[in-house]
Simulated assay, not measured.
Amino acid sequence: MAALGGKLTKKLVENLGPGRHGDGAGLYLVVDPSGARRWIVRVTVKGQKNAKGAPLRTDFGLGGADVVTLNQARERALEYRRMAKSGLNPRYNTKREVPTFEELSRQVHIDRLPTWKNAKHGQQWLNTLRDYAFPKIGRMPVDAIGQPEVLMCLSPIWTIKHETAKRLAQRIKAVLDVAKASGFREGENPITAVKEAGVLPKVKAKVHHHDAMPWQDAPAFYAELDKRTATAAKALQFTILTACRTSEVLDMTWDEIDWDSRLWVIPEERMKGGNPHRVPLTEEMMRILEPMRDFASTYVFEGQKRQHPLSNMSMLMLLRRMGRGEFTVHGFRSTFRVWAAEAVDFPREVAEAALAHQTGSEVERAYARSDFLEKRGELMSVWATFLLKQTFSANS
Rank of each mutant, 00 (worst) to 15 (best):
V175Y: 07
L176R: 12
L176W: 11
L176H: 11
V178H: 05
S182C: 12
G183S: 13
F184Y: 15
F184P: 06
E186C: 02
G187W: 05
G187T: 10
G187P: 11
I191P: 08
I191D: 09
A193Y: 00
V194E: 05
V194Q: 03
K195Q: 12
E196K: 13
A197Q: 11
A197Y: 01
A197W: 01
G198H: 04
V199D: 03
P201A: 06
P201Y: 10
K202C: 00
K202Q: 12
H209D: 07
H209A: 06
H210D: 06
H210Y: 14
H210I: 01
D211G: 02
W215I: 05
D217W: 01
D217S: 13
A220N: 09
F221G: 09
F221C: 07
D226E: 09
R228F: 01
A230I: 05
T231A: 08
A233K: 05
A233M: 07
A235L: 06
Q237F: 02
T239A: 14
C244V: 01
T246P: 01
T246D: 03
E248H: 03
V249Y: 01
T253S: 06
T253V: 14
T253H: 00
T253L: 00
D255Q: 09
E256L: 00
I257H: 00
I257M: 08
D260M: 08
D260Q: 14
L263T: 11
W264F: 05
I266F: 00
E268S: 15
E269G: 09
E269H: 13
R270G: 02
R270L: 07
M271N: 04
M271T: 13
G274P: 04
G274H: 08
N275S: 04
H277R: 04
R278K: 13
V279M: 01
P280A: 04
T282G: 12
E284L: 07
M285R: 11
